[in-house]
Design a binder for these strands. Structure first.
Lengths: 207, 207
DNA sequence: CCTACCGATCGGTAGG
DNA sequence: CCTACCGATCGGTAGG
């Protein structure tokens, strides 16, 4: 098998995935159809399907790519910060920036996919749940570090902090996409900052 | 036109709407198909379509019904409470209860629909935006009353409170549906209570 | 509210 | 990676 052919196949494959992510971020993973992707890339349906076997395979590939983008855009810029509260603040910053820059044409891909598949059993839902749980665990781990460093109120549940940051991000996404609220990012930042408030002065027991 | 016929038609119509809401809460407003609803009700597609004209008409009817249910389940039980902070706490309570009782088989219908259509121009998106904006305005109005009564910190933006409550509700919905987090409701309650925190120092989160 | 039907598109396969 | 094709289903219409 000639080398060039395999390299070209990989290139075709990433073009399909890239296009699929764009389509699915607007019309959902279900609105992602093989025929549409094929048409937009000037390929045959069989040519597209050959790379993934089934529509579900294409959906999973698109999801993995989108998670990679999220990690690259939100986690990686913050990863080098000091673990604990400083890094959580850096993540918050990157997260809001990621939402504001409309990295995906249809808003946060992962949020949209999670909404769409949270009640439909199958590999797509499982992959979403796995990624989401991993992300929340990472946030909670940093919250635990912050807690031990005395950077969060003593009674704070680290998982509550992770839950709260994620909820705010979903809220910002909705406020931007559905309501076009120009204050969305600012509200998100105030809410995230409140979740990551230092324990002195205005002391609070919950999150 | 005989009376009985018209009454039966209305009854048929509500059966269609009811079934459509159930289907769409799991599979989305796009996954709602005329053929499926017809099949489940042992009707013809034309019989279903006759009541709404187009698929979009059916989607809008399902959405209106779901908004009515939300209002009935979340707003009405709290409506009689004292406007301001007490009523916001009652709404928070009803909202979490509504999520926990799985009033719709596929989780919060409005959240799911908003996620699905927030990037798709058209009447469905407009109806969603209108209802969402109205709900947030109602919450913000009560936050404003609370603020004037001295029940919220002086620098609070009432719209931020509305934004925060909505974000937490979305977070609870996701934590329940996608992650099956048994702590979801408790986290939501702690987060909402924090948003509605009394302003004085050394105040407990309860009240 | 039905039957009967329309063109379009769906996911997927056969065979090359 | 293509052409050619499959049965199923889509939203919607005609006519009653």
């Amino acid at each position: 098998m000639p080398r060039r052919s395999a390299a070209e196949a990989l290139q075709t494959r990433s073009a399909i995935v890239e296009r699929s992510v764009a389509v699915a971020s607007v019309d959902g993973l279900d609105g992602l159809t093989i025929g549409r992707v094929a048409g937009e890339l000037h390929m045959s349906k069989a040519g597209v399907l050959g790379h993934f076997g089934t529509k579900e395979g294409l959906q999973l590939a698109a999801l993995e790519a989108a998670v990679g983008t999220f990690t690259h855009e939100v986690w990686e810029p913050a990863a080098g910060a000091t673990p604990g509260r400083p890094r959580l603040l850096a993540v918050a910053d990157g997260w809001l920036s990621y939402l504001e820059r409309d990295v995906f044409p249809g808003g946060c891909f992962v949020t949209a996919a999670a909404c769409e598949f949270d009640d439909r059993p199958g590999p797509v839902r499982e992959a979403l749940a796995r990624h989401q749980a991993r992300w929340l665990r990472a946030l909670a781990a940093d919250a635990r570090v912050a807690l031990r460093a005395g950077d969060l109120p003593r009674a704070t549940d680290p998982a509550d902090v992770a839950f709260g940051l994620n909820a705010v991000a979903m809220g910002v996404n909705q406020a931007r996409r559905l309501l076009a609220d120009p204050e969305a990012t600012a509200r998100g930042w105030r809410a995230m900052r409140a979740l990551l408030h230092a324990p002195r002065a205005r002391r609070r027991t919950g999150v």
